[in-house]
């Protein structure tokens, strides 16, 4: 049995916000690392290699 949330507060708000933050961080990390040239394609290929 769990306690009811304090009045005026959303139960487990911090947890939901953290889960949302996880998703946002993941998408942002993927996007920014690709933009910064950290894709495996960019890191390991050279001018003499055509992958696309």
């Amino acid at each position: 049995m769990t306690l009811p949330p304090p009045k005026g507060k959303t139960p487990m708000k911090s947890m939901y916000l953290a889960f949302l933050a996880i998703a946002v961080i993941a998408v942002a990390a993927d996007f920014s690392l690709h933009r910064a040239g950290f894709s495996i394609q960019e890191v390991t290929s050279g001018p003499a290699v055509r992958l696309d």
């Binding site: 304090p6 708000k13 911090s14 947890m15 916000l17 953290a18 933050a21 996880i22």
Partner: peptide
């Protein structure tokens, strides 16, 4: 009667760690 055990930022940090760990 209840008392505050963990603040919202502490809980946020815990669930950030816990949620990502589970995934």
């Amino acid at each position: 009667r209840t008392i505050l055990r963990f603040s919202s930022i502490e809980r946020f940090a815990h669930w950030l760690l816990a949620g990502s760990f589970v995934l």
